[in-house]
Design a binder for these strands. Structure first.
Length: 549
RNA sequence: GCACCCGUAGCUCAACUGGAUAGAGCGUUGGCCUCCGAAGCCAAAGGUUUCGGGUUCAAAUCCCGACGGGUGUACCA
């Protein structure tokens, strides 16, 4: 409809011999301004130097009567053209909800574009902590949104089980191991202080006794054991949240296949790398960075930048047309370097979309929860799930825009009451389910979408709250698409809340179960539509949609 | 110091990416269950969108400058 209208308006504009412009529509905030509005006349006024209201008038005259679905066209304010649609238009649209059912909301806008979403990517040096939650949830929601919008999504987790961090992990475990054996063994200054290190050490003592005490070569064993323990833990946590990755990409493979060396050589050949102070430097300044960066340390080990660059090149080589990276604000420094590197290798950075989310703080009512890295008691993501449940974790981490700081109120999230926004949504779904069950007990057929579509006399839907509900329900596909294309899942939560609200208002004003069987069927159909929309939205967010609660 | 993000009701945050009268939840105050789920609905109060300039028909949104908060600024990742 929007597209048809857009076409029509642009032909009208050329008939009026006005310059060509981009026509945008918007859904007005205020109900009195209709269902759709365009600022075309105002934009024309600017280029054609004409009075916007007069221009609007000329356009409207040519438009009137062109579409039976449009019940009125008005000119308002400085020159907005407001369109109002007839109820039958919304009713017709809403039938799609029943026809598509659990697929309603999907679109093909992504056109099967090969897409890689990389997120979490925490090295296996410990369990995921609560702050990781935002990243975990954000990436899952974005992946789901892209999938629903027709992108071909590969979910990826990049990790490094070599290097400094893992060495430190091994040393930390080793020290705890010796301590477990009753020795006064020094703990490394920069070691991992979490209690889980002690747990790992205990397990090793149980299995191997003191046989690993002497030989330094055996430290390899500690690294392996630590990695395995941590990765198992991480994967269990992701599993609990229903988050799965298709590919776990190990940085090591980049060395094994010579991809790291390849990048260095190419850089050298193009004079983008040089030796200084015993290290190899990348001329990042050539690509807008503030200073050149070391890519191979004087020790001969690459810094994290080099494999990151090689890894991103591999994403291009693997044929991904859209590359999405999700990072926390604490990793922001690496981004310009990686982008510069990719550019240096001759790839366009346009197809790389980096989502940076700000940090999270946790409060419990009024009390701020302090997170210190020195603390042995880590507040893990598992702990958070135990406290507030999977649904609240999903909903709370995604309900705010990624680029603002998030305050996670644990007291609120675990409260089983109306204060908690997760319940508002779930309650609407459970309430609808209950009504449908009730109808079945009154002798109605179980809510089968196809059956409901055939049996319903849609002309009985005419109350204001009924039409308002339909209006919002049919927006789902558009909302999903725009959330996906802007990588902003939080807007879906806002929408779902509004949809639930609209349902509650309808429910409150009109009886569904009543003596008029035909009217009852029509309203049951409305309920079923609302149920489908809420359920589909919840699916994307990873929130459950209970039949009873 | 420099780079990035943010500053909106008492608190936590929205605002369709430049549109019309800036909206929700919590908290506060009041109303609504003989009837399908009151985990709900309705209403009231609460604002110079941190401040100062600019851009234009139109600015919370874009630009410049202050102030305040966060995150970075490694031959750690």
């Amino acid at each position: 409809m929007k597209d048809l209208l857009k076409q029509k308006i642009s032909t009208v504009i050329s008939e009026l011999q006005l310059p060509e412009i981009e026509i945008n529509f918007e859904k007005p905030k205020v109900e009195a301004h209709g269902d759709l509005t365009t600022n075309a006349a105002m934009l024309l006024a600017k280029v054609a130097k004409k009075n916007p209201r007069e221009t609007a008038k000329a356009i409207v005259e040519k438009l009137s009567g062109a579409f039976p679905e449009i019940s009125s066209i008005e000119i308002a304010g400085p020159g907005f053209i407001n369109f109002k649609f007839s109820p039958s238009y919304f009713i017709e649209q809403s039938k799609e909800i029943l026809r598509q059912g659990e697929h309603f909301g999907k679109s093909a806008a992504g056109a099967g574009k090969k897409t890689n979403v990389e997120w979490v990517s925490a090295n296996p040096t410990g369990p995921l902590h609560s702050g990781h939650g935002r990243q975990v949830i954000l990436g899952a929601a974005i992946s789901k949104l892209l999938e629903w919008t027709g992108f071909d999504v590969t979910r990826e987790y990049y990790f490094n089980n070599a290097g400094n961090q893992m060495r430190m992990l091994a040393e930390s475990i080793y020290a705890r191991y010796r301590q477990e054996l009753g020795e006064d063994y020094p703990f490394p200054e920069e070691g991992y202080k979490g209690d889980y290190i002690v747990d790992i050490a205990k397990e090793i003592v149980k299995e191997k006794g003191d046989t690993l005490k002497q030989s330094d070569d055996e430290k390899l064993y500690f690294k392996k054991a630590g990695e395995e323990w941590c990765f198992t833990k991480i994967k269990e946590t992701l599993e609990r949240l229903g988050v799965r990755h298709d590919v776990f990409y190990n940085e090591d493979s980049l060395y094994a296949t010579g991809k790291i060396q390849e990048v260095i050589e190419e850089f050298r050949k193009a004079d983008l790398a040089y030796d200084a102070e015993g290290a190899v430097w990348f001329r990042a300044t050539k690509f807008g960075a503030e200073k050149d960066r070391v890519i191979v340390k004087s020790s001969g080990e690459p810094t994290y930048r080099l494999p990151d660059i090689a890894y991103h090149r591999e994403k291009f080589r693997r044929g991904f047309e859209l590359i999405v990276d999700i990072f926390g604000a604490d990793h922001i420094a690496t981004i310009p370097d990686v982008l510069a590197g990719v550019e240096a290798l001759g790839y366009k950075t346009d197809s790389v979309k980096v989502i940076i989310h700000q940090m999270v703080s946790f409060v419990n009512g009024d009390e701020l929860i302090k997170m210190s890295k020195r603390n042995a008691k880590v507040f893990t993501l598992d702990d958070l799930i135990d406290l507030v449940g999977v649904d609240a974790v999903h909903y709370f981490f995604v309900m705010r825009s990624a680029n603002t700081h998030l305050e996670f109120d644990i007291a609120l999230a675990k409260e089983q009451s109306d204060k908690n926004p997760v319940y508002y949504l779930q309650y609407a779904h459970a309430r609808i389910a209950s009504i449908l069950r009730h109808a079945v007990s009154e002798g109605f057929t179980p809510p089968d979408a196809g059956e409901y579509l055939r049996r319903t006399d849609f002309s009985l839907i005419k109350e204001k709250e009924e039409i308002d509900l339909l209006k919002i329900l049919i927006e789902l596909p558009e909302i999903i698409q725009s959330c996906a294309l802007s990588f902003e899942p939080h807007r879906l939560t806002t929408y779902l809340k509004e949809a639930a609200e609209s349902f509650h208002r309808f429910y409150h004003e009109h009886r569904v179960i009543n003596d008029d069987k035909n009217l009852m069927q029509a309203r049951l159909t409305l309920c079923l539509m609302a149920k489908i929309v809420i359920a589909n939205g919840c699916k994307i967010l990873g929130v459950s949609y209970p039949e009873k609660m």
